[in-house]
Amino acid sequence: MNSPELQRNVFLFLLAIVTVAFLWILFPFFGAVMWAVALAILFTPLYKRLQKRMPGRRNLAALATLTICLVIVIIPLAMIAVSLVQEASLVTQRIRTGEINFGVYFQQILGALPRWLTNLLDRFGLGNVEGMLSRFGQGAAQTGQLIATQAVSIGQNTFDFLVSFALMMYLLYFLLRDGAELSKTVRHALPMARPHTHFLLNKFTTVIRATIKGNVAVAATQGALGGLAFWVLGVQGALLWAVLMAFLSLLPAVGAALIWLPVAVYFLATGAIWQGVSLTVFGVVVIGLVDNIMRPLLVGKDTQMPDYIVLMSTVGGMALFGVNGFVIGPVVAALFMATWDLFASSNDQDEAP
């Protein structure tokens, strides 16, 4: 009854139970833990440089890195969020006063369309202006109700957000300071061959670093360029649309076009030819070129994944995990490909004479 095999099985069962229990405890703060790990991986090179300049002062180097992270990443995001809320409130007020009327815009587009296209839309039930306006009004009402509900939810969850933010910063400090030792512990603890463990952990860190740097750089560039184009063309709420373009640009190839393309179509349909042509050319050549050049260089090159895998994993990850999915999706895809590569290579070695 007390054989070594039984003892090992009981110990493995206990190990699985306590591991699942620990992950269950951390699950309410999944986002905070994930972003702490991601930021630690992203800022570890900076921490190592500061540590070389501060020999024997690991705490001070970690604190300095944490401060730089606050200044570079978190404070600018907070300022953008505040400006976005103000801009969204202003646009909402203009919609209520009728200064911005999407129904009128839609009616203008339909009036500028050729007769054959209008007839085609009538066949599909899309040419009925009153019906479309009614649907748009219902959709706007539902959207407004959803936004109001989310605003109340955000207000109620402010304490939870502050707790998660404090936990993220606290964990980030210790991950920066003790990350190397923790990585060695994980490598020794995993029941895998050392080369496989080393390869998978390096793949994990490389994909996270490349995904965050690449996607954030592409999103910021496309959002800034799109917002600048809207501001030059006199589109109201340029900052709001810029942030939306930056967020949607996390979807490769099609993201930012979901914002600027309808505006270009409206310009062309209402007779503002040079504005529509300029925005179309700028969107296709400049904004599209940013996605086609920067994303493969910053994301696909380091992750060593095809563009279609990056696209599918990003969209699937965001569908399952929200904003966090643009990191989780490519990481899971990269580990999937790396694990199967290791499995195939081990089979080739077994079959070799």
Rank of each mutant, 00 (worst) to 15 (best):
M34L: 15
A217I: 14
A151N: 04
I273W: 13
H188M: 10
N215R: 05
L200D: 04
W274Q: 13
S134P: 02
F30K: 08
L289T: 07
F22I: 15
Q86C: 04
K203P: 00
Q138P: 00
T143W: 07
F326N: 05
A210N: 03
L201H: 12
R57A: 10
V218D: 02
E181L: 00
W260L: 11
A210S: 10
W340L: 10
N202I: 04
R187A: 13
T314P: 10
A264I: 02
F136W: 10
L335N: 14
Y105E: 14
V285G: 07
L66V: 14
V285P: 06
G155S: 02
W260P: 03
F230M: 15
L63V: 11
S278C: 08
V91Y: 09
P262L: 12
T270I: 00
L225T: 05
G214A: 01
R58C: 05
N215I: 07
A151C: 00
I309A: 15
L6Y: 07
V235A: 13
E99R: 02
A81I: 06
L146W: 08
I309C: 03
P252Y: 01
F11G: 14
L182G: 09
A141P: 01
V315Q: 05
I154M: 15
R96S: 11
T205E: 12
G214F: 01
P353E: 09
V310H: 07
R8G: 00
L297I: 14
D302R: 08
T211N: 14
R123D: 06
L50K: 01
F204P: 01
L289D: 04
V331T: 09
F30E: 14
G131K: 06
F247E: 10
N59F: 03
A189T: 13
F247A: 15
M312N: 08
F124P: 03
F22W: 12
T206R: 10
Q108F: 04
A16H: 06
W116M: 03
T97W: 02
L146P: 05
P262G: 07
G227Q: 13
I328F: 06
Q145K: 08
T149P: 01
K48C: 04
F29D: 04
I259R: 01
T44D: 13
P306M: 08
L240F: 12
Q275S: 12
F29L: 11
L12F: 13
G179W: 03
T206G: 01
